[in-house]
Design a protein around this nucleic acid. Structure first.
Length: 424
RNA sequence: GGAGGUGUCGCAUAGUGGCCUAGUGCGCCCGCCUGCUAAGCGGGUUGAGGGUGAUCCCCUCUCGCGGGUUCAAAUCCCGCCACCUCCGCCA
């Protein structure tokens, strides 16, 4: 949800943001019209209600003769109050319906256009030149098999396509990654969290995942619960309906949780291996702060992601995601894309979004600073998405003999191991 | 899954249809008194939203949440939620 007052003051800005996303600018005018009706109906209901209350007070203390008269008047009034209330409810519902469709206003700095219109901001590290080293790199599927780390066939047998087992050293590698990432985040001041992976509709709706993205979400109809695609959902809803003390900001949380994605509409893509899966585990960073601070915080989240990727020894680039590819909540999004040797491409490993006050308005999360109360700003950023990180690590650090070198930062979490060795 | 109970201002409690615009105590804030502290005395104290209003005022909402009955609901009725106790199941 965006700021209505701003929308009224400067509708052209919102229309422009819609255009940059390739979305409909007319939605803005529709919202303004519906809001006008909503405000009028609220005003008329409140006026009638005040009148009714005043009459009620008179009746309480009136003597019998006056009472009959007053009762007759208030009976009529009561009917109008009911009518006005119904009208108000309807106007509110119509307003909510239309305003929830509007995406957050894309930043003017975000590139206009769709998925392919990103701008590359940075390259860090050089993709390894396997030809120069004199061997052909294996893909993560083959490496995972040789190391006894990933079992895709049995994943499919047990759970279907896009599922996998991490086995042996693969399971240990994931746990090492999780622990290393959580420790790292804690050292930056994030509060470690293990949140629920099933959430109520409100949390899903509030974070903007029930819009166009709804097809990608698992729903349990019997309980009306959703499986989260990211712990961002639970972390954002954590402080829903709360007013946060401005002095406590920023509040930073780092959560470890499983993530579930239906991957509807991506049937042809990445069908091999564990790059695109229905379930993976993730360490996610999440910040509550003020709107003004959010822009600097976004850069900090990106810097932390880069530090982590660099320490894993990955070659990667940073892209500024185009407006049309931002999702409903974000005004700006940076992705870190790691070089995947056997794909010969940079692929998304982490993503950080500034959602400004969009999610906070929907979830009613406010901050109190001095006397003033205003919506909080929320931001999220991936620190470590397990399946993809494992893909990038195995492929990047493989050696000619089929072993895989372990980055220094992970060794303390893997009993000091410097390499992962093929099993028999 | 079954049975029962509880939910009122920061905390504790009163309140069984209108004088509830929610009382009282504790706590907290301000002031008086005061070597200091405590006590005592006086005053204040739910929160939120809105207003072509700006430090003052007005309106609405707020007794777990949502409906209903009624001219009128903290109070009566229905549904839901959370918590507690017990039974069943269970890592």
């Amino acid at each position: 949800m965006i700021d209505l007052r701003e929308l009224r003051d400067d509708p052209e800005r919102a229309r422009d943001a819609q255009r940059r996303r390739g979305a409909s600018p007319e939605l803005v005018d529709e919202i303004l019209a519906v809001d006008e009706r909503r405000r009028a109906s609220i005003a008329s209901f409140e006026r009638l209600r005040a009148e009714q209350k005043a009459l009620g007070r008179q009746i309480a203390t009136a003597d019998a003769a006056e009472k009959t008269d007053l009762l007759a008047r208030t009976r009529e009034l009561s009917a109008s109050v009911k009518e006005a209330e119904a009208a108000q409810d309807q106007a509110e519902a119509a307003y909510t319906d239309v305003v929830m469709q509007l995406a957050n206003l894309a930043s003017p700095d975000a590139p206009a256009g769709g998925e392919d219109d990103y701008v590359v901001l940075d390259h860090i590290g050089e993709p390894r030149d396997f030809a120069a080293e004199g061997f052909e790199p294996l893909d993560h599927i083959e490496l995972g098999r040789r190391l006894g780390a990933i079992d895709i066939e049995r994943g499919a047998k047990v759970s279907g396509a896009r599922f996998y087992f991490l086995t042996g050293i693969g399971a240990q590698l994931e746990l090492a990654l999780v622990m290393a990432a959580m420790d790292r985040a804690a050292s930056w001041g994030f509060v470690p969290m293990v949140p629920p992976a099933l959430v109520k509709p409100r949390a899903m709706e509030g974070t903007g995942f029930l819009g166009q993205a709804a097809d990608d979400v698992y729903h349990l109809p019997k309980d009306d619960l959703y499986l989260v695609g990211t712990s961002e959902v639970a972390l954002a809803a954590f402080h829903s309906d709360e007013i946060l003390d401005g002095a406590s900001l920023p509040l930073r949380y780092a959560a470890f949780s499983p993530c579930y994605r239906r991957e509807a509409g991506s049937y042809g893509k990445d069908t091999r291996g564990i790059f695109r899966v229905h379930w993976f585990d993730k360490v996610e960073m999440f910040t509550y702060t003020s709107l003004e601070e959010s822009y600097a915080e976004h850069e900090r989240l990106l810097a932390w992601e880069k530090e982590w990727m660099t320490d894993l020894g990955l070659a990667y680039r940073v892209i500024d995601v185009a407006a049309g590819d931002l999702g409903l909540s974000a005004v700006r999004k940076y992705d870190c894309e790691a070089w995947i040797p056997t794909q010969g491409k940079y692929r998304e490993l982490t993503s950080t979004s500034n959602c400004t006050q969009f999610q906070a308005r929907r979830l009613d999360i406010r901050i109190r600073r001095g006397g003033a109360i205003e919506p909080a700003a929320t931001l999220n950023g991936t620190l470590m998405a397990s399946a993809r990180t494992i893909v990038a690590l195995l492929e990047t650090h493989q050696q000619a003999d089929g072993s895989v070198r372990v980055p220094e930062v992970l060794r303390p979490y893997l009993q000091g191991r410097a390499t992962l060795e093929p099993v028999a």
